[in-house]
Design a protein around this nucleic acid. Structure first.
Lengths: 193, 193
DNA sequence: GTCTATAGCCGGATAGAC
DNA sequence: GTCTATCCGGCTATAGAC
């Protein structure tokens, strides 16, 4: 199965459109147009819109796993790895200011729609949380590791929401600097690790 | 003009429905049913759906102003007033865990829809920001007041997003405690004020 | 696997009677 | 000010030819 199969292409385009326009507001016609196929052909690959959402969430989970694995391999120690997470906000700043965080905004939208996939979307947060917990453990955070991981996740989400609302890159950069400072001055973590 | 006029009732019900179900996903039929009028009658009060959104945002701004004014009047000093803001997360925890923050989720949805009212929705954040700036000024934060106000806004938004994603009240309460601790231990703020 | 054609529904919006 | 009746378009989804 080649990576550029029609099915994969549908998932890829749907992923972008769901992120940039929202799940509810994105129609089959838009996805079909982006892929370059007819609407009818669509249903050969996915029976319902929910099925596409399911596939998009699965794709995002897989890409998240791959990204975390990459940071795990490349990162020079746990502190540097956590910085990789924080700096995502800078790397993706243009899209975040336009559309917010892909995980946070999807989770919030699905919550309002009372959609069954809301839990699955939140599992992406779970991947980040678990990975961050292991980094904070390696930093010697012990029992605080989970609280620190969730706090960092929450702060990055807050930055994303406010950066989208005000479309303010200076604010985003200031907050990233603030989070990095928070990480550097956390008590009870060995500075050299 | 009585407060329970049909027009006011439409705005009130639309406000709730937009919050709980999202703007795009809420139909005229749902609002009309909630108000108890026919769809046709609807257009006597509002020409387009965007007009209702405009009115809903205006209503939220007015209510926010009133709430901030209330805190200003009742709060026992600036520190206590900032705590009123923080404790909103506790007071509204059930709705936040189900639907997120009304301001943050609306702003994010409108950003994706590329809706003209996105800026107006963000102005509600502006009200909170300006009010918090004046509190931090009163606490002696000086030039840091704006950065502190934005940081507090962002942290509360982050808590709302994560609490919605995981539907976890313990996390929400822990984070509120963390934010209160942050406020209590801010450097360069006179503790007595 | 991809297409055209179309069903069936629901969305926002309008006209006009009362 | 409120109603019923209706238009038009876009939506998800299906059927069936190629």
């Amino acid at each position: 199965m080649p990576a550029s199969s029609t099915r994969e292409l549908i998932i890829e385009k749907a992923d972008s459109l769901f992120y940039e326009g929202g799940y509810e507001a994105t129609s089959f016609a838009q996805i079909a147009a982006a892929v370059g196929i007819s609407r009818g052909n669509f249903y050969h690959h996915f029976k319902t819109k929910d099925d596409i959402l399911e596939a998009v969430v699965a794709r995002r989970m897989e890409q998240t796993r791959a990204m975390l694995h990459g940071w795990q391999t490349d990162g020079d120690g746990p502190r540097e790895r956590v910085l990789s997470f924080i700096r995502m906000l800078i790397a993706n700043r243009a899209k975040i200011m336009a559309f917010g965080c892909p995980v946070g905004t999807l989770s919030s939208e699905l919550a309002k729609l009372d959609h069954v996939a809301q839990g699955r979307a939140a599992e992406i947060f779970g991947l980040f949380r678990d990975w961050l917990v292991s980094q904070f453990r390696a930093l010697g955070a012990g029992d605080c590791a989970e609280a620190l991981a969730l706090r960092l996740l929450a702060r990055s989400q807050g930055v994303a929401v406010m950066a989208t609302a005000f479309r303010d890159e200076t604010f985003l950069r200031n907050e990233v600097a603030g989070i990095e400072h928070w990480l550097a001055t956390l008590p009870n973590l060995s500075p050299s690790s």
